[in-house]
Simulated scan of single mutants.
Amino acid sequence: MAWIKFAPLNIPLNRRLQTAAVVQWVFSFLFLAQCGLLLYVWLALECWQGAVLYAIWLYLDWETPQAGGRRSPWVRSWPLWRHFRDYFPIHLIKTCDLDPEKHYLFGFHPHGILVAGAFGNFCTEYTGFRKLFPGMTPYLHVLPVWFHFPFFREYLMSSGVVSCSKQSLMHVLSQKGGGNVSIIVIGGAAESLEARPGSLILEVLNRKGFIRIALKCGAHLVPVFSFGENELFEQLQNPHGSVVRRIQEGLRRTLGFSLPLFHGRGVFQYSYGIIPYRRAIYTVVGRPIPVQMSVWASAEEVDQLHGRYLEALSQLFEEHKTQYGIQQHRHLIFT
């Protein structure tokens, strides 16, 4: 059909491997949790002993996602993730050194649709985090609900993903000796509804919980901007007040996460599908904002540090935007 652009047959093997790696990742992100739940139901029906044993394990292991998780260097080093990185490709850019004797809280922006940059940079070993920031251990924090799905929770934790609950953040950022990095995608589900090519809208003005955590733990704040994150998918127009947006907001308030109506490309054609486009991602890690521990921080302290963070985030964006394809006259929009 004329309106579908099909992939050529003579694609090099390395590009086919890259596409396969991304297909696996998209499937895991969107469907693996449900598959884990179905697997547990099957166990309960066909092998109840296995279901009981896993239920006991789940009971004993329930708090692990809030206590640093259970990362697997082997899983994080799968060659699969090298192909995943090269598909876009994903780049991690450092602007200054981090002191491994301190803890840091990275605020990651923007959310995008599937936060490919956050996963590629902080949940795999193939964009050079350990070489760029020696002595530092990254923890990507996600919604606690994902750790309620049987088997999927183990897969998540193996890559260094942990819960974004207050307890989890406090655990990571309060360890003696320093060297931990908590990564939070600040805009969350609300921001994903704005994720489309060209969008610079960040849901951040009323997001101050991470500021309170940083003050409580004395963790230094670091703004991180991932150029290209919003370019990976197209999204159905959903302006505020529209029927689509009202339904999406209602689902977000009820379920805790949103359902962006997006599309990218397919496996064998470039016009329709749920595979992200091949567009480069440049994740730039900014300069730390020193934070003095304040266990009982006042609202004024929180607002002051939040303002400093927004200023640093804007400065980071302005310093690098033209280098990564954004026109000089364009600026971040905070909502």
Rank of each mutant, 00 (worst) to 15 (best):
Q248S: 12
E249C: 06
E249N: 13
G250T: 10
G250D: 11
G250V: 05
L251Y: 10
L251K: 12
R253Y: 11
T254C: 10
L255S: 08
L255R: 12
G256E: 09
G256Y: 10
F257H: 13
L259N: 07
L259D: 01
P260E: 07
P260A: 10
L261R: 08
L261M: 13
F262V: 15
F262L: 06
F262S: 12
F262M: 11
G264F: 04
G266C: 01
V267P: 00
V267W: 12
V267D: 01
F268M: 04
Y270E: 14
Y270H: 15
S271P: 00
S271T: 15
S271N: 00
Y272D: 04
Y272A: 12
G273K: 09
P276T: 03
P276V: 03
P276H: 05
P276G: 06
R278T: 02
R278C: 07
R278I: 00
R278Q: 14
R279N: 11
I281T: 05
V284Q: 03
V284S: 05
V285K: 03
V285C: 11
V285Q: 04
V285N: 05
G286C: 08
R287M: 11
P288L: 06
I289F: 07
I289N: 09
I289H: 05
P290L: 02
P290I: 03
P290N: 05
P290S: 05
V291N: 03
